[in-house]
Design a binder for these strands. Structure first.
Lengths: 324, 324
DNA sequence: CTGAAAGCGCTTACAG
DNA sequence: CTGAAAGCGCTTACAG
């Protein structure tokens, strides 16, 4: 009955279950894992810098957006009865990393990997451990991914600025070899092309997804081309915060002189000065999609289609019409 | 030899080890856990709101400070060869929560619990699972804690303001039933008493450790007693951000009209407008202390003394001398 | 010192 | 349908 192989009358079933509950019996998970060859555990990794651990960099502001994703992931995995696991080996030692996953009988893996670690993404796919990537393109017989609609999101940002009359729009995006960053750049190009607005290469900046790097890039841009743009789109809210600092230091008013749009809609946005207009990705869809697809792979053992989470514009005070 | 019970010649040992490595053999952790009655795993929990999960609330700004602690904890546990584990049962269902820890053979637990969940802290201690609390007083035969020096830190903040000539100093602290919050209030009272400065009850505000609540408290304070204080100490940098927003909206200049001090020294501080003077707790000591003490309890099975992490003042642009 | 056996706490395939 | 046995992959206490 307990294993569900037998049909028992509902009342009897309840009484037996009650009796078991009264005893306080809980099956030993370890013994269960050994015999079932699975642990009902999902591993979590934030692929950030070189040689990092699962949680390393979690306190860096560039990662702030993913924190909400993490708690959503936890909620979803909990609902499905899985515990979460964080391997302590750094994934720079990938062989041992995967070996830990296997000898611990981890059922699957969610890997948040917005970074250009193609080798590791590939190695993970090759390991044949069911894996779901967040913000990294990774597909295989037992691997799939969910991704924010970086292209569409950035396009919405540009369209918003175009509607306000802006034509000289700078973009502050991430590293060149980074998927989200290059996709956002694509959205920028797309939206400008659609509107028949020419693109100016010198208004395209690459920086780390980082407040400090964004600040520095902005300082450099202002030094070289101040006055040659009326708006800037940042690849993340944290980058926008860095950019705003540079603008503030130069005495440039936002949004009167320059409009600023962020990306992510982190909870700080309303408290930024000025409150930040931004693009909000659908976090619930992203996190739920990741977990459900992963469970699908684990339980049905088949390939699963990737999905893209949509975005929406959240308008606050950092953007305004062009003033002549 | 492998278990270390036999003495073998070094050279032979190396050759055997090399042969094993060549085979790629890794002992099955699950089988090992079953027979050794331990999993070399440490559970992690962030005790935040009611009925939360291990990671719930991790994306709330009020928790930002602890993120750095988390990655430090991971580094330390990894060095000691432990993997991290996040039970999926909410600790609101505490019996099952503890049961998961036991049936998974978790070796110990690190619980970040700045909140007033005395019952849960007590229940955790009673479970007899080795536990180390961060920012919660919890002691037992197999439990201890590490805590930021909230009293001393807040005292440093006040002393800094006193040295700048401030006498009318408001404090924006956390909930009344919260250990860190009440300790910071104590530091405030201490420092004022030491300087012979009288305390004004109406300048003592309690709010959640939260940007929004801090903002609202500040709005209320300004409405009632604007002009009656020249400085304010917030219980966290995020609360300071909320307070700054309220000041900005009222056209009150920082630091010319009001000086502001935060607490935590999160990485956003230099990017805040104005860059925030704050109190920095020694995060490394906090995290290392937590892990090492926990391992001490696990391995030596004895009680361990708690410890307090010191703080230091980090001066930036949000504080200045009183202007008459 | 070495090697075979017992046992960790379960599940599952199988004999009765 | 029920119950006893085998087995998951290790470690460890024990007989040789």
């Amino acid at each position: 009955m307990l294993t569900g192989t037998t049909r028992v009358e509902e009342e009897t079933k309840q009484r037996v279950l009650a009796a078991i509950a009264a005893t306080g019996y809980e099956p030993d998970q370890i013994a269960q894992s050994l015999v079932q060859q699975r642990s009902r555990t999902i591993a979590l990794a934030l692929l950030l810098g070189e040689g990092g651990f699962s949680l390393s960099g979690i306190g860096q502001s560039r990662f702030y957006f993913y924190l909400h994703i993490l708690s959503e992931i936890e909620r979803e995995t909990a609902a499905a009865g899985y515990d979460l696991f964080l391997p302590s080996h750094p994934y720079s030692d990938f062989a041992r990393y995967v070996s830990t996953l296997k000898t611990r009988r981890v059922d699957g893996m969610i890997m948040i990997a917005p970074y250009p670690f193609e080798e590791r993404v590939r190695a993970m796919i090759k390991s044949n451990i069911p894996t779901l990537f967040v913000d990294a393109v990774g597909q295989g017989p037992r691997a799939s991914y969910v991704m924010v609609d970086h292209i569409g999101g950035c396009r919405q940002a540009i369209q918003h600025l175009l509607a306000l009359g802006h034509r000289r729009i700078a973009i502050l995006t991430g590293e060149k070899d980074n998927d989200p960053a290059s996709q956002r750049l694509l959205g920028y190009q797309l939206a400008l092309a659609e509107a028949g607005v020419g693109m100016d290469e010198k208004l395209v900046l690459h920086a780390g997804f980082d407040r400090v790097e964004a600040y520095e890039a902005m300082v450099a841009l202002l030094k070289a081309y101040c006055g040659e743009f009326t708006a800037i789109v940042a690849a993340s809210d944290m980058m926008a915060i860095g950019a705003l600092r540079a603008l503030r230091e130069q005495g440039i008013r936002v949004p009167e002189d320059v409009s600023v749009v962020g990306f992510d809609d982190i909870d700080l946005c309303p408290d930024i000065d000025p409150p930040l207009t931004t693009i909000r990705p659908d976090k619930e869809v992203l996190a739920q999609g990741a977990v459900r697809k992963l469970l699908d792979i684990i339980e049905n053992n088949g390939p699963v289609a990737p999905s893209i989470a949509s975005t929406q514009l959240v308008q606050r005070a950092s953007t305004g019409p062009v003033l002549h």
